[in-house]
Write a protein that binds this DNA or RNA. Structure first.
Lengths: 207, 207, 207, 207
DNA sequence: AATGAATGAGAATTCATTCAT
DNA sequence: AATGAATGAATTCTCATTCAT
């Protein structure tokens, strides 16, 4: 007579992290790792079967942990966003208001260049994956970094979080194209960073 | 008077634009138009059948003109790149060295925001599609624009074509994400443009 | 720019019987025949692949003709209902008002006993398959038969089409159970028929 | 006082109701209840996992009690048949020879209409489920009821148990189709009952 | 005995591509 | 050249059943 617990809606924020059996937790991790690798290489179009192979589990196991492919994609991306957010917060607490934002920006772009993950996934499968909270968390963390940078007067006061995020995402997305070597990365960021810095004394910034 | 079949352009693999029957040429055009629309809406994952439907031809006809789906994708993108290249050249011949590069940049980003085409395709199917010549042509055209802008002293002398293209692609890719309204577009570009402009007199640009 | 003709909704009554190519029509027939056989034997749970094998076509061909398994089931059942309806109409036009209804009833039960088709399918997959028109057609045809039988005074006047159909379906469904040999069939129908006949003179039918 | 394990009924294949631990017996009951509910709602295609959920046990527990899904289905149906048989016997011992058979018939059909159980299951999974003894028991009980009804002269003498069972199963099966409301049920049964009653005096029943 | 994770064989469906008409 | 039917591999997802904990 007891109704079965309804499957939690995809992407819901109540990620009830109920304690898993040891083997289950081990597999979950393996699957996430495999998925990150597989989707990084092949984009969201890569097959779930390939993920299972790479993780060394049967296909059914993947689907037991992530009932749909979308759930799996969402899980990877949330994990990634969590790591990034932590990273930003650390930079924010570390000190050096002058470089925090730029450091993070550069670091994220570098990582994108190495792994297609973030961006490729955002571009491909972005639709239909609900990441709400995770994205917001990252945004707020970056917001703090930006505020500090502005207080330290290394970023123009009229720059808003909006466009910083936009530039960040854009540059990361760009970074995964063939031909972006470390040098191009540096030079591209140099332009962006120059654009963020305050125009010196008498210079009217033409917007 | 019918021109003799022109020698295939260097580096292209069998573009042989051999003379087509009138109906065939008409179909080719329709297919390209339909494909651009379909792939813009649904990404490279959209089906070739859908393209055929939209073009009002049978599926076989699509494959007669473009032996593989990849060929079709390549053709669309070449066509697009050609249009862009023409656009740049026009701007270059028009005059106003001071604004050409910025105008083109802004125009392309705006178009990206409206149609997913360029970027979506680059992101999705980029792999395996050979666009060599077309991309080079666009790059050279932009290069000319950049050179003029630098001569007019509205872009820093040490900025290279490389990073301009990188910024262009990145920003376009960013532009198709939800939430990029016209205002965000303007503010994001403002940062990039500010980054491209020469640092006024005594300011040392820290790179 | 021309929108593709939308796939007609499942079970819609506009079965646009557009002229098919010869091979396509041949395959369609083969598939329907195979499907009738396969689903008769294994119930609606039988696999579409099995249908394809039996029909001697590839699985894709089955799905080209019937976009979902449900469509295929609906098609079989409509076909069957059509045959039955024709059968009833013939009996209705033939003459002998006294026996028409009983003959049809018996014939249908006999057929059910031989092939599980009708009933099995109705029972299994009935849900979700829209047969509206086809069923109504059969019902009306039987209604005519019933009316004649009542005018000929071989069926009680107070019997309604409703319960005749109910008895028909029930008996057919029963007929496919193991153990229904011809004799049991005859005896079971005898009871039903006796129940339909008018109670003689002074007998009050206790309902 | 606990009864000793009864000797397994003749003809059954290893029903060995060996004494179970208290919790095991409780689980067995819960599983059976859950299974009846689940399969009634979703037909035999419903998943065993769903049964486990509804019963509040793990899937492994279900399979420990019933090694295959078929075993579980068989168990439900046996249980159901047992209840029905008890019901018939009670009616048989109760008195009122004139109405016993009709009452039971009507009651069973009504129950079918409410719960798909009996019939749906018979139709869906009937194949491969061995119910031998249980069915026989029900049949004998109904046979007794029939004999009494015939002795009381409310059922024709030439009606055999065979066809009574056939009518019963058929009508139950029919009863679960959509549209069988209480009224249709009554009218349909009225025809069947009229068919079972003796033809009054001078009327020759045409069989 | 119970638990619940893992397995892996299907099942339905899609789609690029081929080929007979 | 065009048509559109046929092909069949690939993909996502389900579920009965097994097995380690």
């Amino acid at each position: 007579m007891i109704a079965p617990p309804p499957r939690p809606p995809v992407g819901s924020s109540s990620d009830a992290p109920k304690p898993l059996r040891a083997d289950a937790r081990r597999n979950r991790t393996r699957i996430l790792d495999a998925a990150e690798a597989v989707f990084s290489e092949g984009g969201a179009a890569a097959s779930t079967e390939e993920v299972a192979n790479r993780a060394g589990v049967a296909i059914g196991t993947v689907f037991r942990h992530f009932p749909t492919k979308t759930d799996l994609l969402a899980a990877i991306m949330k994990e990634l966003l969590r790591r990034l957010t932590d990273d930003v917060r650390t930079l924010d607490n570390d000190g050096d208001a002058a470089t925090g934002l730029f450091t993070f920006f550069a670091r994220m772009v570098a990582e994108s260049a190495a792994k297609r993950t973030v961006v490729q996934l955002l571009a491909d499968a972005g639709v239909g994956v609900d990441l709400g909270d995770s994205v917001r968390a990252l945004q707020e963390a970056v917001g703090a970094l930006l505020a500090r940078a502005q207080r330290a007067d290394v970023v123009r006061a009229d720059v808003r979080l909006d466009e910083v995020m936009a530039l960040l995402v854009s540059t990361c997305q760009g970074a995964l194209h063939a031909g972006w070597d470390a040098d191009l990365q540096r030079r591209t960021l140099a332009v962006v960073f120059a654009g963020l810095r305050p125009a010196p004394e008498g210079t009217a910034s033409r917007r």
